[in-house]
Every structure is written in structure tokens, then in C-alpha cells.
Computed example of a mutant assay.
Amino acid sequence: MNKLDLAKTYKTYYKSGSEPELVGFGEAPYLTFVGQGDPNGERFAQATAALYAAAYGVKALGKSQGTDFTVPKLEGLWCVESNKPALEAPRQEWRWKLLIRMPDFVTGTVAAEAKEKTSLKKKELADDIAQVAYETMAEGLSVQMLHIGPYETEPETVERMHAYMEARGLVQNGLHHEIYLTDPRKTPSSGWKTILRFPVEQRDLS
């Protein structure tokens, strides 16, 4: 049985360079979990555990039907309600949507069946697994760049991305998107690799 690896199939999605670049993405399915609060807090950890449990449940179901795949990297969409930059706002105000991309053959029906079976096996996560949603997303035209280092130094990379956008008459048209290529539990913070991405559109000059 061939195992689908989305990172190899969609290289532009899961790989970026050390300079800002303009890319485009079509619609894709995801498992998601919406929450709020400190990413170092218990709620975020529970959400991550539930999302991965559901994703591996989809993988197990697919494998039993002859469509195995590698569970992709964790992603996150971030925002705050105030007008402050996210890193200047209290962490309890941070709003996030965690994502794990799914293969195109995964439908809402498949995700629901996988969630039900996984909840029976992981009863301690059942309530959180119930909050995992299936949805599709199409970011379209986007600017992305690889950030290397701790999350606290992301503003330096974001500033370079904004300069790139300004020079090309582009403005942000969606949420701050991150894809976590390294496991912070296993890698020193100086080596953390995160793709930063902003959906964009042409500035209205009228």
C-alpha cells in the first residue's frame, strides 16, 4: 500500500525559504479546533492532543480502506480582538484555530466516523475530540516565509514580510497562519522552524 505524504505532494505548502515569497493555494480539507488562551496553557495542550487523536483516527480508518497517509504538521491561525499586535496583548486574549490538513479524499462523513471511533478508544479525550471540526479552507494568494528561532522573535520575520507586501502593493486579507515544522519539545528554540503565512490581496487604490 502506498502511503500519501502531503508534505511531498504539496511542497510549496509545507516548504518555504528564508526570503518572503508570493504563493497561491486552493481549497483543502482540515480538521480544526478553535480556542483561546495561552499556547503554553493546559487548554491549548488538550486541544492539540484531541486534534492529533482525531487525525490519527482518520488515518487508521483510511488505512483500513486502503488509503493510508502520513499525518501532516500542526498549523495554527492566530488573532486578537484588540488592535494591539498579538505579542503585545495578554496571552489570555489570544484566539487560535489549530489545524491539521487532510488528504482530499477525506470527507466530513469520514472525519465524523473517525472521531466517533477514536472517542471510544480515548475516553479521556472524548469531550475535546467532540469539539474537533471538519472544514475546508482556501487562502488563495499569500505571502509566506520561513522563520527560524523562538516564536518571540517572529516580529522580525513579520516585518520583512510586510516590507515585501508594501513594495508590491499587497495588503493582508486573512489571519496570521503558522505551520510548525519542528517539535519544540525535541528541538532547542534556536532551531525551531515555522512557516509564517499571510493571505493577501492587491491594495485598493481607488
Rank of each mutant, 00 (worst) to 15 (best):
I148A: 13
M145N: 01
E178S: 10
A163D: 15
S142K: 11
A167N: 09
T153F: 01
E166Q: 14
Y134V: 00
L170R: 05
F198W: 13
H147M: 00
M137Y: 14
L141K: 15
G140T: 09
Y180E: 08
L146Y: 09
T187W: 07
V171W: 00
E156G: 04
M165N: 06
N173M: 10
G149P: 03
L170M: 08
S190P: 04
E135M: 12
L146F: 09
I148S: 15
A138V: 02
M145E: 09
G174E: 08
P150V: 02
K186T: 11
T153I: 05
H162E: 14
E154M: 03
K186Y: 05
E154P: 00
T157G: 05
E152T: 10
H176I: 02
Y164P: 01
R168N: 08
Y164L: 06
M165K: 01
T157R: 06
V143K: 04
L175W: 03
Y134H: 03
M161D: 04
L196G: 00
I195R: 00
G149M: 08
L181E: 09
H177K: 04
Y164M: 01
G169C: 03
G149S: 06
I148V: 15
Q172G: 14
S142I: 07
L141W: 13
P188N: 12
E159I: 02
L196M: 05
P155W: 06
W192G: 10
Y164Q: 07
K186D: 13
A138I: 02
N173Y: 12
